[in-house]
Write a protein that binds this DNA or RNA. Structure first.
Lengths: 250, 250
DNA sequence: GTAATAGTGTCTGTGAGACACTATAAA
DNA sequence: TTTATAGTGTCTCACAGACACTATTAC
C-alpha cells in the first residue's frame, strides 16, 4: 500500500481468484485438471479454482477450493500439503475482465477422486509430462510448470516429503515419493544413508511392518521435527555436468 | 479462475497493490523504508508501494513503483534486480478496506537516493537487522523477513550476484556482495575457487583493473551465461550442525 | 617500509555415488 | 525355489573449509 494513505474510493477494482495446482505423487507425478464447459477456452483443460470471497483470506480461499474439489483438507490431513506458489496478473490473461490469480501448489500422496457435484465430472488426472504438452486454458500451462519445479525443488531442501508420506511410513515409501516427484531413479542404499544422516528428517517409531509383495519387514518412521534439510538432498540433475563427466559411470 | 466461467458482475471487488522490498547490498544488507504520514500506522515505517493500475500488469506496476521511488529501472540498469516475492491477502491486513498486496523483492548494489517529490523526503535506508526489530506498519515486517530470506537463498543457487555486481566486476567485489547479503565472512580463496569452477557463472573480460586502496590489479569478469548455480554455493549456516561439530575449528 | 588486495598451493574431512552383499518375507 | 523388499559394507572421487604462502599495488 502507499506510504501516505489514499482515497479509498479511488482504486481500480480487481477480481481475485485462486488457482490450485494439485499434484499427486503416486508412481509418477500427476496433476488434476478440469475440462472447461464454457467460453473462453471451452473444451480446454484448466486448473481448478475460483473467486476469493470478500470475507476470507486468500489462504483460506485456497483451502476451501481444494476441499470443495477433492475433499482434501490440507491443514488437517496427513499426506496433503498446500502452499502459495505465485501470483499471475497480466492485463489480458482473462479476456472477460481484469483478474488477478493467486496460484497455490497442492501436493498429495494419492489421487483423490474429485468430489461429486460442481464440475467434478469433468475432472481428470494427467501425468505432468502430458499436461505440460497439452494446450491448457489461460496461462495455466505456465502455472503448472512453475508448480512442478517448485515441488521438485522443495523436496531438496525441506522435509515436505515426510508430510506427503503421512503419519507412518517406511524408508522405501519415502524413497518412492522422491522418485515419483523428481522423475528419476535413486539408489536406495545411498538414499537411506542420506535420510538417516540428516538430523530432524525422520525418526523411528520402534515398529516394523511387513510389505504386501514379499520382502523383509520394514522399520516404520514418522516425520522428524526439522523443516529444512541441512544439507539438502540434491537431485541427480543438479550435479555439475562437469563433475558428472569427470566421475563418469562405472 | 473458475472452470466453468462465471457471472462477471458477481465478484467481490478488491484493491490490488504492490509493495517493494528494496534491498541494497553495500557493506551490509539494507532495506528502504518510508515513514508514514497518515493513519493508519502514522509515524511507522512502511514499505514503498502503491496501487496497480487498471491497465498495467502487476509486474509493470512493481517496476513503475520502483522507478518512481528511486529512479531505478530494473529491466535496463545493471546492478538492479526485481522479482515477485509473495502475495499477502489477510482479510484485515489493511483496516480501511480489502487490499491484496503483491510483494516484490528488489535488489541493488547501491543505496539510491529516493526520488524527490511524493514521499521521498520520508524515505530512509536501514540495515535489515534493525528493520526487522522495528515495528513496521501493516504486515510489512513479515514481508521484509520473507524478502531477506529469499535474497539470501537466491544467491546460493542462482547467478543473481553477478547481476548485482554490474557489467564488469572483480572477484573481490562479487565476494563482497555475498558477504553483505549473507551477513557472514567467507574465505576469499575458497570463494574464488568455487566461483571459477562453476560453469557459466563468470567469464573474464581479458582486462585487469587497479583498486583504489592498494593491492594487486584484479582480473575483470562479467556475468556468464548460466542462470542456475550447479552445484549451489552454500551458505556456511546451511552446513549440518552435526558436520560442523565434527569438523570443528582448527 | 606498511597496508591492502589478488591470487596460488595444499592438506583434511565429509559425503555422494556405485555397487556388492546379506537378510527376511510372500507366492 | 524365485521375486521383492530391507538393510549393511566399502571403495573412490569431488569438494568445501582452513590456512600458509607469494605477488602487486597505493601510501
Amino acid at each position: 500500500m502507499g506510504p501516505t494513505g489514499y482515497d479509498a474510493t479511488e482504486f481500480p477494482p480487481f477480481a481475485v481468484t485462486v488457482d490450485i495446482v494439485l499434484l499427486a505423487a503416486t508412481d509418477t507425478l500427476n496433476v488434476m485438471l478440469i475440462r472447461r464447459g464454457l467460453e473462453p477456452f471451452a473444451g480446454r483443460l484448466a486448473l481448478p479454482g475460483g473467486f476469493v470471497h470478500a470475507d476470507e483470506s486468500i489462504e483460506a480461499a485456497a483451502h476451501r477450493e481444494l476441499a470443495e474439489e477433492t475433499g482434501l483438507v490440507a491443514a488437517a490431513m496427513p499426506g496433503v500439503h498446500l502452499e502459495q506458489l505465485a501470483t499471475f496478473g497480466a492485463v489480458d490473461r482473462d479476456p472477460r475482465m481484469r483478474v488477478v490469480s493467486v496460484a497455490y501448489l497442492g501436493l498429495s500422496r494419492s489421487m483423490p477422486t474429485p468430489t461429486a457435484g460442481t464440475d467434478a465430472a469433468a475432472a481428470e488426472w494427467l501425468p505432468v509430462e502430458e499436461a505440460t504438452m497439452r494446450e491448457l486454458a489461460f496461462d495455466h500451462a505456465a502455472i503448472v510448470e512453475t508448480a512442478v519445479e517448485r515441488a521438485r525443488a522443495k523436496l531438496e531442501y525441506t522435509t515436505l516429503a515426510t508430510t506427503l508420506a503421512g503419519d507412518e511410513f517406511s524408508l522405501g515409501e519415502l524413497h518412492q515419493i522422491y522418485e515419483a516427484v523428481w522423475g528419476v531413479k535413486l539408489d536406495l542404499a545411498n538414499f537411506r544413508r542420506k535420510v538417516l544422516a540428516t538430523a530432524g528428517f525422520v525418526e523411528p517409531t520402534g515398529e516394523r511392518r511387513v510389505s504386501r509383495l514379499g520382502g523383509a519387514p520394514a522399520t516404520v518412521y514418522r516425520g522428524g521435527p526439522g523443516a529444512a534439510l541441512v544439507p539438502p538432498l540434491a537431485r541427480p540433475e543438479s550435479r555439475s555436468p562437469v563433475a558428472a563427466l569427470r566421475s563418469g559411470r562405472r
